[in-house]
Write a protein that binds this DNA or RNA. Structure first.
Lengths: 145, 145
DNA sequence: CTTATTTAAGATATTTTTATCCGAAATAAA
DNA sequence: TTTATTTCGGATAAAAATATCTTAAATAAG
């Protein structure tokens, strides 16, 4: 569904957000360790997310990543997906046609659109804060040992 | 959503089915040309689909691929997806956890399950015949020029 | 100012996916 | 039986995604 990079990105944001809820700033290594992601690759992803203003980064000693609580209430999961995977999942044709619309639809167009708008709506109405709160409360996990 | 290979596979099956509705047996080259897929790669995919009994192939002159009308009424799009992409789309965790269930869910588990079961149901209730009929009637297309 | 720590950025490597090529096997028709 | 046509299967190649490494830039603390 999402690229592996995007899965890492979502888990990273949620880990950082969860820690930020406790006012803890985290380093790349912490993120990698607690999301089961490769460290150097995680660095790249966090850098991308920071450029997209989805995270706040601080360089130097005692630096790391964090997200303001206000910000995590605003940010939707859809924004993370968009920043990493682009809009293919929102706009692309299910059968890969370079153009596909009601006027000239692929055979799956109608059915695909329907399911996908559910997915889109789900991603656009789910905030980072909502999910981070669940993780903080121990109701869900970001890594499986 | 689906791999590129899977997109080619679905389009190939639908093209062959559409032609079969007119009792026309088609060759690899025809399939590639009419689905906008690379020919040699299409050959590989058709071979896989044939092994999975989703197509009928005939070797030699006047050979090619076809699908009985009876068969295309039975085959669901879900079977094509499963043959090519496996069960990741049906069972995998949205965030890539190697195990994810209601007991130890990833933060998106519930919402993801919901959307995905819609997708699953859609694929499992859509037959090749249904879509091929649409294509035959000119109501949808497999390639965009 | 110097040192240690941390993210940023670019180059490089590995793995997976996508794609091609070529010879073998099957088979219809002359 | 020979030839032409077609799929099949294995080897190889190219492109994209995933992952690592190395150096630079920023900055806090001594």
């Amino acid at each position: 569904m999402f690229s592996k990079t995007c899965e890492y990105a979502i888990k990273a944001v949620l880990y950082i957000a969860t820690q930020s809820l406790n006012n803890i700033r985290v380093k790349i290594g912490d993120v990698a360790e607690n999301t089961g992601s490769p460290e150097a690759f995680t660095a790249k992803i966090l850098s991308t997310l920071t450029k997209h203003k989805l995270l706040h980064s601080i360089k130097g000693p005692y630096g790391g990543f964090e997200i303001e609580e206000k910000k995590m209430k605003q940010i939707k999961i859809s924004e993370i997906v968009y920043a990493i995977d682009g809009d293919a999942i929102y706009n692309g044709c299910g059968l890969g046609l370079n153009k596909c619309n009601a006027a000239k639809p692929c055979p799956m167009h109608d059915k695909f659109i329907k399911v996908r708008s559910e997915l889109k709506k789900m991603l656009e109405t789910t905030t980072v804060h909502e999910l981070a709160t669940k993780v903080k409360a121990g109701k869900s996990i970001l890594i499986r040992n």
